[in-house]
C-alpha cells in the first residue's frame, strides 16, 4: 500500500485463520442454539430449529474450509494491521467505545461534546479552538435537526432537567 516499510503486527495469514476459526465458533453456537429447539419435522412442516441447524452446519463447514485453505497457503507478505495504522485505529476506536458506554447515562449531547473534544482535539491534534468549536457546534446542529426537523428527540440525560427541556 505505501512505500514506507512498516513493522508488521498481525500478518494476514494468521488473521485469516483466526477470523475463520471465530466464524466456525459462531456456527457452532448457532448449532447449539438450534438444538435447544425441535430441529426435525412437525405437523406443519419443518420445526423452528430446522433451518437454523442447517445454516449453522453450512457456516461451520464453509469457515473450516476457508481455514484449511488459508492454513495450507504459503505465508505471503500481506499484513492485516501494520504498526502505525494499528495505533491510529486503536486511538480512533477507544473514544468511540467510551462514547457508547456513557450515552445511556449522559444522553447524546453531553456525550457527543466530550467525544468530539477528545477525538478531534486530543487524538486528532486539531487546534483546541477549532476542536472546541466542532465539539460545541455539532451537538447544536444535531439538536436542531433531531428535535425540530426529524421530530425524533434524542435522550438528553441530565442536560434535559438542567435546561428545562422536555
Amino acid at each position: 500500500m505505501s512505500d514506507v516499510p512498516q513493522r508488521p503486527v498481525l500478518p494476514r495469514k494468521q488473521a485469516e485463520i483466526a477470523f475463520a476459526l471465530l466464524l466456525a465458533l459462531v456456527g457452532g453456537a448457532v448449532i447449539a442454539g438450534a438444538r435447544e429447539m425441535d430441529t426435525g419435522w412437525g405437523g406443519s412442516g419443518p420445526e423452528a430449529g430446522y433451518f437454523p441447524l442447517r445454516i449453522g452446519i453450512v457456516l461451520v463447514v464453509a469457515s473450516l474450509a476457508v481455514l484449511v485453505r488459508e492454513a495450507l497457503r504459503p505465508a505471503g507478505d500481506g499484513v492485516l494491521i501494520a504498526g502505525i495504522g494499528g495505533g491510529r485505529l486503536a486511538l480512533f476506536v477507544l473514544p468511540l467505545v467510551a462514547l457508547v458506554a456513557v450515552v445511556p447515562w449522559l444522553g447524546f449531547y453531553i456525550a457527543a461534546f466530550a467525544y468530539l473534544l477528545v477525538a478531534v482535539g486530543l487524538v486528532g491534534r486539531v487546534r483546541w479552538g477549532r476542536a472546541l468549536a466542532i465539539a460545541l457546534g455539532t451537538p447544536l446542529v444535531l439538536f436542531v435537526a433531531f428535535e425540530y426537523a426529524f421530530r425524533a428527540p434524542l435522550p438528553k440525560g441530565p442536560l434535559g432537567p438542567l435546561l428545562g427541556l422536555p
Binding site: 480512533f92 473514544p95 468511540l96 462514547l99 457508547v100 450515552v103 447524546f108 457527543a112 467525544y115 468530539l116 477525538a119 478531534v120 487524538v123 486528532g124 491534534r125 486539531v126 466542532i134 455539532t138 444535531l142 433531531f146 434524542l154
Partner: peptide, 13 residues
C-alpha cells in the same frame, strides 16, 4: 481527523 469522528458519531446516533 475531523470528519472521521463526526461520521462515527452520526453512525452511533
Amino acid at each position: 481527523t475531523i470528519t472521521g469522528p463526526i461520521i462515527a458519531l452520526v453512525c452511533v446516533i
